[in-house]
Each structure stands twice: as C-alpha cells, then as structure tokens.
Nucleic acid binder design. Structure first.
Lengths: 247, 247
DNA sequence: CGAGAGGTTGACTTGCGTCAATGAACGTGG
DNA sequence: CCACGTTCATTGACGCAAGTCAACCTCTCG
C-alpha cells in the first residue's frame, strides 16, 4: 500500500501468544480502565478473534498508511514512530508513541490508517481486533468517553510537538527533543534519555541528519550530554536550557 | 491569564441575541447532527443558561489559554486562529478554524483551554454552555461518539498541517498555504482564496513576515496570483503546483 | 491630518542544507 | 573468524535560502 521505492522495512512480527489481559496492567490502566475483571472476562470470552501479542524487531512495520485491517494496537514496550511520506519519498515522523499508548484508533471510526507505524527499536504490542471495541461499546455506552480522552491527549501532544519540536533554530529543536524524550520515556527522575539520533531525529525535527549530528557533537563537547551505553545518555538539564535559550 | 506584554487584543464581543438553534443549519449539521427537532427543543428548554450568539471584530479574543469558562464555541462565520505564545512572546498559530467548526472542546473533558482563540476577521460564533453538552450526553449516550469524530477530524487536520505547511522551503509552504486556504474556505470551486498575509501567515508557516511578503510578490509578478478585492485573490492552481515543485 | 500598525522592498549576514569523504557498526558468506 | 558490503553517523568545505535590520509605503482610525 506504500510506495515500494522506499527503504525496505521488515514486515513479519513474531506472535508471542495470546494476551493475558487479566494480567496486563497496561490495558487495565489505559484502554479498559474502569472495567472490572468480570466485565473484562465476559468481553474477552465473547469475541471470536483473540487478542494476540506480537514482538517486532527494529524497523518492522505494524501497519501501513491506507490499510484497513480491523485492529488497533496497544504498545506494551518500545517506541513506535507514526510516519508519512513526502512527495519525494522522504519520511516525516508525525508522532512518536510509547508503551501504554494505543495506535490505529482511526480504524474505530472507519477511516483507513492515517500513518505507517514502524518500530524504532524492539517493540512488543497487542493487536486488538475492532470487534472487541464494539463489544466494549455495547456493554458500556460510556466507553467512547474513554476513547475520546485518548484522542484529546494525542491532540494535545501534537500541539506541543508543533510548539517545541518544530519551532526555532536547530539547537533549540534538538534541545527540546532531548527534554521531550526524557519526559516521554520517563527514565526515572534521573536526567537520562534513550536518544533518537540521525535520520529519526531529523525526520521528527524537520532538519537534516547532519545538523542533528553536529548539534549532538557540540553538546557532548560542552559536556552537557554524556554517553552512558547504547543509545542512553545523561544530560545536564539546566545547562541544556541555557544552551537552547542562548540566541 | 496571558502575558500582558503581548500585543493588545480587543476583548469585548457584542451579543447578537439568543441562538435560534432550530433554524441554525450549522449546529444541526455539525454538533447536534442526528438529533430530531423535538429532541433539540427539549434539551434547549432544559438548560438554565442560554445559547447566545456573539459577533467579534478583527483581533477579538474568544477565550484565553488557561481559562476555564464553562463553554465551547461553534463558529458560524469567519476565521478563528488558535494560538500559543513562545517564550519570546511571539505568537504561533496552532490551528485555523472556520465556520461550522467547534472550538474549546477540551473544556468538555475538564481541561483548561489549550489555546487562545482570536478572530482573524469579523467572526460570529455561538457560545454553548457545557451544561448543554452534559444534557445531550444524558439524553443520548452515543453523543460522545459524535464528539469523538470531531476530535479525530481535528487531529487529521493537524497532521496535514505538519506535512503541508510546516515542511519544505518557504515557496512550498506559501504555495501549500494558498491551496489549503482555498480548500478550507471552499470559495466555490473557482480558484479563489481569502488570503492570509504578513504576520498571520508567518505565524502559521513558522517563517518571517518578510519571507511571506516576498513570496507573494513573486507569485503576483509571475501572474500565478491575481488580486481581486480586499483579501481575496484568484490563482492558477496548476502553475502554483509547478512553482512549489520547482526545486 | 498625524500617529501607529502592518506590509513592502532592499542590502546584508548567517544558519543550515548540500555535497562529499571518512569512519564506525552490523550482517553475511566464504 | 575474518573480509567485505551495506547502511548509518560523523566531520569538513561550500553556497544559498531565508533571517535580520532598516527605510519607506500604505492603510486605518482617532
């Protein structure tokens, strides 16, 4: 459904098994909140299609823009980027979703997927057939209230995204990205982040990968950013703000 | 509630009168769709606070970010910009809303207004107390379904906004803005637009007012854009696309 | 008619994109 | 296990698109 001239992405997830919804604190807290265990059980038994859990490797596609599978996904771990492609086939990251977020919600309204969802690192996610949501709706009319809150949350995030990550100079954007990522991933209250770099960061901030690299290099040079391991870094929050604010 | 060092905006709307909801095709089509006249009547009678219609002059503020009046607004005519202010007090337009759009929906979820809403030209809008919506909810549990669709629509627009108006060169952004405005305002199928210029356009596209001015001047010079009257222009859609695509 | 805000235009400067070369990381096959 | 290819990150040199600064014009409104 996407243009094939694009970079090749892996496409086969591994099915981990049926989801243990009763034991899944994420679903409980998030999508099915305010349901009792009994209600949840009855719904799960009522469906013919199971809720499966899948694991995806880096670069795997959960779904493509324009597709119309009857399912949404709830991320259990990892980061998923929702992207669209510009006319020149370059990738633009529209949103970045983390554990406990649900994606593909537009299918509930009958729209095709609005983005292509790609795992940034290793990801596990539950595939929830839309039938489940329809049952939920039937059982609990106020269910849509819940869903609405999620839409609203996503929208607020989109606004912040525009304000923080798509405004100002390269330095400001990169600085904001670091703060934002550390917020998102909530790596404890410690000032550490799993950092997006290169192409991914560039596609979020609408700048080039080279600019990202240069800026991160400068931050390391200034000792505002220190490497820990892998993609993990710690940073000096105060100095980072100053760096961003300095003309 | 906003930083007062900012440009002064007029703040007093004129109350036009109680809204004639039964005769208001906008509300019918949009927010209260799928309600019968009888249902609508019974709801309107049930509320203590009336639905008033106001007219705002250019620059008037419908509400401020952070405020918590118990009302949403449905725009009946004109354009309203939803803005936030960057640390340096410069204005950034997050969304542009037109007739038949509803704004301030976040109040339904109990959040404070997420933006400051400012009339771009003359605007008329109905102020709908939240109580009305709660009654609607009580009468029609599936009401939230409707609201959810609106959230989703806004979100899709936000995505397009990022893709079209906040990507690429100045020329591309301005070109896209023209197309987008002509879409939004649907000035018949003819290729004409009420054009945003200067500061407003700049605040949408995240470029400077000078860049906007220069680009529009060039478009006029190339005869791709022709002045009609006031802020209305007609344009050559095909030539405009070529202009945007040319490196 | 004057003041003030916003739009236009020109000259200058610079941030950042482009291009290109090098290096590091990873996977594959011999 | 090492050699090789592929992909992505890094670094430098260069040029241009667009921001900045400033002068001037236009419109509106008191």
């Amino acid at each position: 459904m996407k243009q094939g001239t694009q970079k090749l992405y892996v496409d086969q997830p591994a099915r981990v098994g049926h989801s243990q919804c009763r034991n899944c604190n994420i679903l409980h807290e998030v999508l099915f909140s305010d349901l009792t265990n009994n209600e949840l059980d009855s719904i799960i038994q009522g469906i013919y299609e199971p809720i499966d859990e899948f694991s995806y490797e880096k670069g795997a596609v959960l779904y493509h823009e324009g597709d119309e599978d009857d399912a949404i996904y709830t991320i259990r771990s990892g980061l998923v980027k929702l992207v669209r492609y510009l006319p020149d086939n370059s990738e633009r990251i529209i949103r970045l979703m983390k554990g406990a977020d649900s994606i593909g919600l537009e299918r509930v309204l009958g729209h095709t997927y609005g983005h292509t969802a790609i795992a940034i690192g290793p990801v596990t996610a539950c595939r929830i057939p839309i039938g489940v949501l329809q049952l939920l709706d039937a059982e609990k009319p106020r269910f849509y209230r819940q869903l609405m809150e999620r839409w609203a949350t996503v929208l607020f995030q989109a606004d912040d995204y525009i304000m923080m990550l798509l405004s100002g100079t390269v330095k400001q954007r990169v600085a904001h990205l670091i703060e934002w990522l550390s917020d998102i991933t909530q790596d404890s209250d410690k000032h550490s982040v799993v950092l997006l770099k290169g192409k991914n960061a560039a596609a979020m901030l609408d700048i080039t990968a080279e600019s990202v690299s240069r800026t991160l290099a400068e931050l390391k040079r200034l000792n505002i950013l220190r490497h820990l391991d892998g993609d993990r870094y710690e940073y000096d929050a105060k100095a980072l703000k100053e760096y961003a604010n300095a003309a």
